[in-house]
Design a protein around this nucleic acid. Structure first.
Lengths: 215, 215
DNA sequence: GGCGAATTTGAAGAGCCCTTCAGTGAATGT
DNA sequence: ACATTCACTGAAGGGCTCTTCAAATTCGCC
């Protein structure tokens, strides 16, 4: 057995996600096949038709995004650290971020695909709930002083993340990951009454540690 | 009688906008023709190909959206009224709002169509500038006490409008025009230090002014 | 009423897309 | 070694799309 039946399916789901991020929600079967390195027929051997594959792939893509956010939270300790890290994790790395591009494409198509609309609504609500827990937790421990109900703050934070995701995917010249993070933190500062100063190295360390012989 | 050459073109642009809002950025020529009540050939008599038509139509749709926002501003007098009215005018009426659906579709496709990305970036920046003027004006006249730079507040307000537009188009069950307006105003209140109480007749008065705002 | 220009139609060509399916290998089990 | 199952290919069918174009229709105007 090369890879097992289940893993093969997941490779196709991953290929479909990439294809949607690249070609839109109405991506062609041929494009998915090309990303997967197969022919159209091979894909239809694993899935009854292309819609079934896409719906499953898109759902999986959203769940993966949400799961990674939850994982990002669990790292930090204090509520303020958690908030900063979580906000940063909700934004695309750069304009090529595959997961966010997928979400943008689906968000655009949600108006005409009720299924995607429902999935995105659920995703939004869960993210809001996630932030609400974080905010209430911080308020209970006295770290945050909420100026507004936690639901209001949570809804606005997630909304800001979404919107700056779109702006970054559209390659806004001055709104990059750092700028967007600061803009959202500016709101969070007002809403929580906490300074929320950025920790130095959050793990995104692109600089080479310069160990070894320079050629 | 017909309508003159120019008006005929504009009818086609309007049809194309509606078609994009309904079928996405990759709408078919046939769909545009159907909305216009013509055949595909007739449309190609006025435009060299479908891409040219779509690019022009989408640009016109964005400009129209922006112009109507400017118009909405000019009505009110005081900065706080202006702010409330402008925020309300940036959100879709309901989930079927054609202009916002168009913007959502284009926003989703912006990742793979640099032209649309540039147009949307420009639209965003102009809306930010519009709010900046409004905020600075209010601050200068002492009505607002800005807690943050006007650019920060303006960027966040426009971002919130965008995001709630997407949520409404996706038919979120609890975020309608009124709820979204309040959420954005909640941020604006923190940022401007003004109460920003909603004026009664905003123009769209379908419901009894019963629940919601306490005395 | 009739003429020329503007507009629209309907058909046809070339091309792409999804899906089905017979057939090709490779892997697996016996 | 042989049969069987699995994974995949490549071709073919049927349908849809964009575009072109000759013919038909409508319009503005004299």
């Amino acid at each position: 057995m090369t890879v097992g039946r289940k893993q093969r399916r997941e490779r196709l789901l991953a290929a479909a996600q990439k294809a949607v991020a690249e070609h839109g929600a109405d991506v062609r079967l041929k494009d998915v096949a090309q990303v997967a390195g197969l022919t159209s027929g091979a894909i239809l051997y694993h899935f009854p038709d292309i819609q079934t594959l896409l719906v499953e792939a898109n759902r999986a893509g959203m769940e993966r995004f949400y799961d990674q956010r939850l994982k990002a939270i669990s790292g930090s300790i204090t509520p303020d650290r958690k908030l900063v890290v979580t906000i940063a994790s909700g934004l695309p790395r750069d304009s090529e971020d595959e997961a966010v591009r997928l979400l943008c494409e689906l968000g655009g198509a949600a108006g005409r695909y009720p299924r995607y609309a429902a999935m995105l609504t659920s995703l939004y609500d869960r993210q809001v709930a996630m932030y609400q827990v974080l905010l209430e937790d911080g308020a209970a421990s006295g770290v945050f002083t909420l100026a507004q109900p936690s639901q209001t703050v949570a809804r606005n934070i997630v909304a800001l993340e979404d919107a700056y995701g779109y702006r970054m995917v559209a390659r806004h010249s001055t709104i990059d990951h750092a700028a967007a993070t600061q803009l959202i933190l500016d709101y969070a500062r007002l809403a929580t009454g906490h300074l929320l100063d950025q920790p130095d190295p959050v793990g995104l360390d692109h600089t080479v540690p310069d160990a070894g012989v320079p050629a």
